[in-house]
Design a protein around this nucleic acid. Structure first.
Length: 567
RNA sequence: GCCCCCAUCGUCUAGCGGUCAGGACGCGGCCCUCUCAAGGCUGAAACACGAGUUCGAUUCUCGUUGGGGGCACCA
């Protein structure tokens, strides 16, 4: 290729009297990327991720400075003649077809302008699953070309979210802005080859144009006013953008793995901006160049990008790059069917973590939201990796259903081994505000009681609440329902039963036998004594099996609690 | 306004011309039971509408309606 360097260093390839691209907004490279440091996932989470390869966030993302703008990326598959960027080839030449033998290269490319929300998480998941299923590569690229809106916090949140979800990526994180020189280089080449042109239209001018179009009921798009115009002396020193000289006739077809063939009239697509007037690349240029350089073979992303695909295809053609396989995922709506928004709460993936959902639950739930495998509902990650394909992705938008999420979470909670779950709960409790630090005794009890505890909880939050009575010693404070159960008559029965309990072996079986015997002797149903017992023991109206809990807490502690309410 | 996508129980979905339209969540009932759960059994619940094509349409085509997405020097 002919790496005509942007801007004026290659006068030979640059069209006649054109001013250099102003670059006021450019910062020194070293100042561009704060490498994430504290957001790495906890050990715990990564240990749980069995299927993952050990190339993920555990390893520190390379400092972005290591990525030179024009050098091929580490994962670019230079040996594949169909990829890379053979700039300088004739336009509209039949494009190389992806060969079947090359392993897929997937990527997730979020922009760090907000949290990792549920839709982004699903996109990441699908990419990850496909990469893992095929033995391909899953890359992470941060699209931070919007310097105004990108924040380090958001970047960190994305990395954290990915880590929590257990989605590890291969290689280093690619920061798009660090590759701006490479993007400029491609734009310069396109310009030199007459596949792009300078547009001197001002923002005001374009706004006016759109308003006119809108008023006239015409589609709003750039009218190509600079497409064939040669800049005169009056343009000297004026700011300009670089636009792609897109095809104006015919149609562009996006062969989508999810949606099928989607056709766009080229007349509907205008000449998109490649380089802004400050010399920085736009998203459109950056994605296409990066995907090509990174050797991306499959672009799986939200359906909100479907229209972009057509425009990007034109750029790809002009660059002579390989066309990736596209798959546009239907969007996720809120429970009311409207667009998912802050109003629905729990937008960020981390919010789900805080609500006590397990990563495994999220993966299973998100997978089923738009993908299916017959009647299967419970699909653990390992199974998902084995089964996942692009053909079974649904076409229609889905809604969040928290009831189903709860149910699934309950399933995976029950599924988790007691000691593992106990450890999860301990960590979770410590992460609460204010932190809940469990004593040694509490931890031991928690683990022992786990079988009874976990089948009563849909979230870790509920698990902590349900285990509350194990955490501290002494008489319980009663909640409303428990208070009702400990009415005066009930306290009297409790007092009567006490001696019988005091006399028995402190095992669940013996305690139950004694209590049953007492109930029978007293001519009451077991519940009449068991419920007040439970209330005094736990402070609540429901709990894991009563006699197990009595045995667990021990004679002394149990009697202490009971005596407080026996009268 | 223009372009694009989508449409099976309330929700997630299976279905790929002939099915009693299946499963899951949720909801109701029964069983189990010391509570609440979990579990088992069971019930109600859907092909948006209108034209075609066909011996036959949930399935194919077109239209209508209804949702959603996109039309930036945002990504």
């Amino acid at each position: 290729m002919s790496p005509a360097l942007w801007p004026a260093r290659s006068p030979a390839t640059a069209p006649p009297p054109a001013p250099a691209v102003p670059g006021p907004g450019r910062k020194p490279r070293s100042a561009q990327q704060p490498p994430p440091s504290q957001g790495r996932p906890s050990r715990r989470l990564w240990k749980a991720q069995k299927t993952a390869r050990n190339t993920g966030p555990r390893q520190r993302p390379a400092p972005p400075a290591a990525i030179t703008a024009s050098a091929p990326l580490p994962h670019a598959r230079t040996q594949a003649p169909t990829r890379g960027l053979p700039i300088g080839q004739p336009c509209f030449k039949p494009l190389p077809i992806m060969t079947e033998t090359t392993k897929p290269v997937l990527r997730f490319a979020p922009s760090p302008t907000g949290m990792l929300h549920i839709g982004g998480a699903r996109t990441a998941l699908f990419n990850w699953l496909y990469a893992r299923h095929t033995g391909g590569t899953f890359l992470l690229r941060i699209e931070d070309t919007d310097r105004e809106r990108s924040t380090p916090e958001a970047m960190q949140a994305i990395l954290n979210g990915m880590a929590w979800m257990g989605l590890n990526w291969d290689g280093d994180v690619v920061y798009q802005f660090a590759r701006a020189d490479r993007h400029r280089e491609v734009a310069a080449t396109l310009l030199a080859e007459g596949k792009a042109y300078r547009c001197y239209a001002t923002a005001e001018e374009l706004t006016a144009m759109r308003e006119e179009q809108k008023a006239a009921g015409k589609p709003m798009r750039y009218d190509g006013r600079w497409r064939d115009r040669v800049p005169g002396p009056e343009q000297d020193g004026k700011p300009f953008v670089v636009r792609l000289k897109a095809r104006q006739t015919g149609e562009t077809i996006v062969h989508d793995k999810v949606l099928g063939d989607v056709r766009f009239e080229n007349s509907q697509l205008d000449d998109m901006v490649l380089l802004r007037s400050d010399g920085n690349p736009t998203y459109m240029l950056a994605v296409v160049v990066d995907d090509a350089d990174m050797g991306v073979t499959h672009v799986i992303r939200g359906a909100d990008h479907l229209n972009n695909a057509a425009r990007q295809l034109q750029l790809i053609e002009q660059m002579g790059a390989a066309i990736p396989v596209y798959g546009h995922l239907p969007l996720i709506n809120g429970p009311d069917g409207a667009k998912l928004s802050k109003r629905h709460g729990a937008l960020a993936v981390e919010a789900y973590r805080d609500m006590g959902y397990l990563p495994e639950t999220m993966r299973n739930y998100l997978l089923r939201l738009g993908w299916s495998h017959g009647d299967d509902e419970i699909i653990p990650t390992a199974q998902a990796v084995a089964w996942f394909n692009l053909d079974s992705i649904g076409k229609s938008a889905a809604r969040m259903d928290f009831k189903k999420l709860d149910n699934l979470n309950g399933h995976y909670i029950r599924e988790t081994a007691d000691d593992v779950l106990a450890a999860e709960v301990i960590t979770f409790a410590e992460g609460l505000t204010p932190p809940r630090i469990l004593s040694e005794t509490a931890r031991t009890r928690l683990k022992s009681a786990m079988p009874g505890l976990k089948e009563r909880a849909k979230t870790l939050v509920e698990l902590v609440q349900g285990a509350e009575f194990l955490f501290t010693d002494g008489p319980r404070t009663l909640d409303a329902a428990a208070d009702k159960l400990l009415a005066p008559e009930a306290r009297a029965i409790l007092a009567q039963a006490l001696p019988a309990l005091e006399a028995t072996d402190w095992t669940a079986a013996a305690l139950e036998a004694a209590t049953r015997a007492f109930a029978e002797a007293a001519g009451v149903k077991l519940g009449a004594i068991a419920q007040p017992l439970r209330a005094a023991m736990t402070g609540k109206a429901n709990s894991p099996p009563l006699f197990d809990m009595l045995a667990l807490l021990g004679r002394e502690e149990s009697l202490n609690r009971l005596r407080a309410y026996a009268a």
